[in-house]
Nucleic acid binder design. Structure first.
Lengths: 194, 194
DNA sequence: AATAGATGTTAATCTAGTTTAACTTCATTT
DNA sequence: AAATGAAGTTAAACTAGATTAACATCTATT
C-alpha cells in the first residue's frame, strides 16, 4: 500500500503529527480501477473523495442527446469526485470514469466527516485545495468566453503538456467545448502555421 | 453598524460562542461604496474578502481589446473578492465593481489568517462556502458548453429572478457570454414565443 | 427645454464553429 | 491475414452568434 504520494501532498499544505497520520491512514481505502470503469455515475450518490496515486480520470456530463461534455481531467497527485454530490450526498450530475488503469485512495463521506473532527487541521487542507480549484474554474469560464477555440487549445497544451499524449483527441475536443472535427481542423491549421 | 446579516449567515454553517463572535467582530471593518466604485482592480493585490450587507457588485475581466467579461454578480448575503488574488496575495486578474451603492463587511488577508488561528471553526465555514462556489462554477462551465444562449438566459432568469431588474441588459449579456445585440434578439424571440 | 451620454433595439452582413457524411488509419480480435 | 471497430481526417453545406451601423429611448445635467 503506497501512501507516500498522499502524505507528501498533504504536507505541502499542513503538518500532520505521526499520530495524526496514523489516524488518517486508518480511515482510507486503496482502490484499483481498470480502464473505462466508472468511479461515479450520473444519478448515483457520490460516496467518496478520491486521491489519485496513478492513472487518469475524466469528469463529464452527458446531456439528453447523449453528448459528453468533459469538465475536467484528473491525474496523479490530484483529486477526482463529483464534489457537488459528495458534499450534499444527493444524486450526481457528473460521471467520473477512468481513462487509464487507475490506482487511488478513497475517503468516504462518513470517514471524512469523522476525520474533520479528529484532525481539525484537515479543514484547512481542504479549504485550500478547494480554493485553488475554484480559482482555476473561474479562469476557465473566462477563457471559454474570451478566447477562440484555437487559443484555448494552445493554452491547454501549455498547461497539460504530458496529458495530451495520454488522452484521445475527441476527449480533448470535448474538454475544449468543440467538436473533434473542428479540433482536427485547428491542428491542421497549426501545422501549416496559419 | 449592522453585523446581524453576517452572524446569521455564519450561523447557518457553524455555531460561534459569544466570545468567538466578539473576537470576529473586532477584526472586521464596515465599508460603504458608491455606485461604480471599484473594490478591486485588475493588477492590484486584492486585500479583502467582502461580505455584502446591501447592494450589488460585478466581478469581471477586461481583455486586451477592452471587452468586459463578467464572471459573477454578488448581492446581499454573498461574498465578493478576487479569490485568486486574495489567497495568493498576487495581482488580481479580475475587477470587482459596485453596480449599486454597496455596504459590505471586509476581512483583510492578515485579519482572516489570524481569525483562522483564533477560531479554527472558521476553516470549516470557509471550506463549505468555497465548496459550494466551486460546484456552482463547474455547473456554469457545463451550461456554457451544452446549452444555447437562449436556454442560458432562461436559466439565468430562473436562478436570479430579482437581479434582472437591477442590472443593465448589456451586463447580463456579458455574463451570458453573448453580445447585447444578440440578447436583445433573444428577448424579442421570447416575446413572440419562437 | 435642450443637450449629452448611457442604454437598448433592429437589421444586414459576416464568421467561427457545427453537422453530415465519406474516407483513412490504427489496434484488436478471430 | 482478414475483419471489425474505434479514433481521426477532410470537405461541403449550414447555423448560432458576432459585427457593424443606424436609430430609439431614457436619464441626468446645465
Amino acid at each position: 500500500m503506497n501512501h507516500k504520494p498522499l502524505l507528501d501532498y498533504i504536507n505541502k499544505y499542513i503538518n500532520l503529527t505521526v499520530e495524526e497520520e496514523a489516524i488518517l491512514l486508518a480511515k482510507i481505502v486503496h482502490r484499483n480501477y481498470l480502464k473505462d470503469q466508472y468511479i461515479v455515475q450520473q444519478g448515483d450518490i457520490c460516496k467518496s473523495a478520491n486521491f489519485i496515486i496513478s492513472g487518469c480520470t475524466k469528469t463529464f456530463y452527458t446531456n439528453l442527446e447523449g453528448q459528453e461534455h468533459i469538465v475536467m481531467f484528473s491525474i496523479e497527485d490530484w483529486w477526482t469526485s463529483d464534489l457537488g454530490s459528495f458534499i450534499t450526498q444527493k444524486p450526481a450530475d457528473f460521471n467520473v470514469q477512468c481513462i487509464e488503469r487507475t490506482q487511488l485512495i478513497q475517503f468516504t463521506y462518513d470517514n471524512l466527516e469523522e476525520l474533520y473532527i479528529e484532525i481539525p487541521k484537515l479543514e484547512r487542507l481542504f479549504r485550500k485545495i478547494v480554493e485553488r480549484a475554484f480559482v482555476a474554474s473561474q479562469k476557465r469560464i473566462i477563457r471559454n468566453f474570451s478566447l477562440t477555440a484555437k487559443e484555448r487549445y494552445l493554452i491547454f497544451k501549455e498547461n497539460y503538456p504530458k496529458i495530451e499524449q495520454r488522452i484521445p483527441q475527441y476527449m480533448i475536443a470535448s474538454y475544449l467545448g468543440i467538436t473533434k472535427e473542428f479540433l482536427s481542423k485547428i491542428k491542421n491549421q497549426l501545422i501549416h502555421n496559419q
